[in-house]
Design a protein around this nucleic acid. Structure first.
Lengths: 342, 342
DNA sequence: CTGAAAGCGCTAACAC
DNA sequence: GTGTTAGCGCTTTCAG
């Protein structure tokens, strides 16, 4: 039962009620190195329960020099890719009694660095950086040094993306996924591909494209006859597809660097009277849950994003010295948007 | 330039470097009531800059008795409805230099209450509770008392849902939206409707259903000839639609209590060889951005969810005594999934 | 094993 | 205006 007084119940209140010292109460409630003997321990716990005591985490953080909070930095929480990762992180955090502080950087790498500095100031236990890394040495160096500061101040860092930085990483095997997708599409009979990519410095997109390219080569059939670059969003997909259609090059299959772009591409096709699947095959990457009911159902390279989030959180908590890389393979899922070509 | 020592830079370090007292440094950096005169102020600011000082927010929180953090409690961050709201909240929080602590309750109201208690313990500045309220007096009473405790401890609370509790509320006009949708569909020529609803105690769904019902009555035409109840999710929509189809009742338009259910319903239709729009019209609620590219495009009642999130955050920050209600109207958007019936 | 007391970094009276 | 100092709630030596 929680007491209805205005002033919050403090540990001192609990100690008084249990007739022990502050120190003992602290030890009983948060099992420190020193153990409290049974009779007392129960008394304290009961008093805490009775008074509805809730430890003040801020105060704990100041005293311990470390908060029981982890930061989650992602490009855009409204993008289902990140929302799914966030769900996984949140689930796992809940299991460990950790708070998750969310910051959506709106795809600004400057803001990402600034937030990381902020989280260091919070003495966050750790931070998860989700989202494609950039192929930009200057930016990566600054991020690396901020990460180093963060770590030196005692925090842990996990990336969900490419392992281009010295830190624990959950690495999506984008290249291998692209390669497998290319082979699957060639097997289905496609030969003339267009690729809708994000700007080259966005590694996630570039890896997927390179893998796809390589896949075509090893398959010994099929060629990339067109490509377009636009933002890594639905609107980018629409724009890139429009450009491809205007180009007039004959293609029989369009591959977008992610599902969200693929969806934009399908809309662009329809806007020009081109029917997805029937007139032109389409494929994407990620297998976003919210988009699994599209019609025609989208062929894609599935990455288990919720699990990726959980995994990132688990790595963060699992204290290890050396930077590790956990690889997450993608799985090609062939659906209606790429019917077998006879 | 940030110094690369292990120990974080404290305010005392800044004060020493600037040759002033701790208090003056504090005042200069966080402009308190007392002002610091110009020559000194600059010295302090420069010293802080030079040393790469970052205020320890935990310590500030302990000293001030209030954290610069707000909590966001929602049912499921992977659901695009909540992800969009979260995006709005996050944007607005960023503008005010506030951290957002996210908790995804997985639709457990128990967990919602528990998290609220936790946030009180954190001395969060405020909390936003997003997600349908329940028609359950017992639960609402417990939530109300927890809210009261939270408020008494100095925090603010804003709800995004129904104004069934004494607190600031951003209220989606679900009933009015349902009503308008019914009239629009009747105008298009539909007469035999099926409604896919969430369990009755979920107010968002129930309000939409009741409004829809009322709309049919005032339109003087059309009738609800079937309905099914399932979870307020994609799978729920699939299940409910399957039930309707099995029922054999003749319907010409299916209305789901939200877009996510509508998507599940469309899949269920296709699984039974029924073509959405052509064979059976479909409509939903929310106008989820990620689902705007469906084909056939989904007729829906649009609620500006990102704006709703921003608004909720704004209300939270805007100190006012009495509980206010900000009404957000829905807008019927007719698309391909409900073609005019001749 | 328990208690007393010294911090953790910062704010806010209270003096000068 | 600026400095001194007493907390904020908790953890953690250091004695006993």
């Amino acid at each position: 039962m929680s007491v209805s007084t205005g002033r919050p119940v403090t540990l001192q209140d609990v100690a008084d009620a249990a007739g022990v010292s502050l120190a003992t109460a602290s030890r009983a409630i948060n099992g420190s190195a020193r153990r409290v003997k049974e009779p007392l321990r129960q008394q304290v716990l009961e008093a805490a329960e009775r008074l509805g005591y809730q430890p003040n985490l801020q105060a704990q953080a100041v005293a311990r020099g470390r908060a029981s909070m982890i930061g989650l930095l992602l490009h855009d929480i409204a993008d289902p890719y990140f929302a799914e990762i966030a769900a996984g992180v949140s689930q796992e955090a809940e299991r460990h009694g950790l708070l998750v502080t969310l910051a959506s950087t709106q795809r600004s790498y400057e803001r990402e660095i600034a937030h990381l500095a902020g989280l260091r100031a919070q003495r966050a236990q750790g931070v998860i950086l989700a989202g494609s890394r950039l192929d930009d040495a200057g930016l990566n160096a600054r991020l690396a040094s901020e990460i180093e500061l963060f770590r030196r101040s005692g925090g842990r860092v996990t990336l969900v993306s490419q392992d281009v930085l010295e830190a624990d990483t959950v690495r999506l095997e984008n290249r291998e996924g692209g390669l497998a997708l290319a082979r699957a599409l060639v097997d289905l009979g496609y030969r003339r591909f267009a690729f809708l990519a994000a700007p080259q410095e966005l590694l996630t997109s570039t890896e997927r494209l390179e893998g796809f390219h390589e896949g075509l080569e090893t398959a010994g059939a099929g060629a990339l006859v067109a490509s377009a670059v636009a933002e890594f969003t639905r609107d980018g997909g629409f724009e890139a597809m429009t450009e491809i259609l205007a180009g007039g090059e004959h293609v029989d299959c369009v591959v977008a660097a992610n599902d969200v772009m693929a969806v934009g591409a399908m809309s662009a096709m329809r806007a020009r009277g081109v029917r997805p699947a029937e007139d032109l095959a389409v494929a994407g990457f990620d297998d976003i849950a919210t988009l699994r009911d599209l019609s025609p159902a989208l062929t894609t390279v599935r990455f288990p994003l919720v699990e990726v989030g959980r995994r990132a959180m688990a790595m963060l908590l699992d204290e290890v010295e050396t930077a590790r890389v956990h690889r997450v393979p993608g799985e090609v899922v062939v659906r209606e948007s790429t019917p077998p070509k006879d």
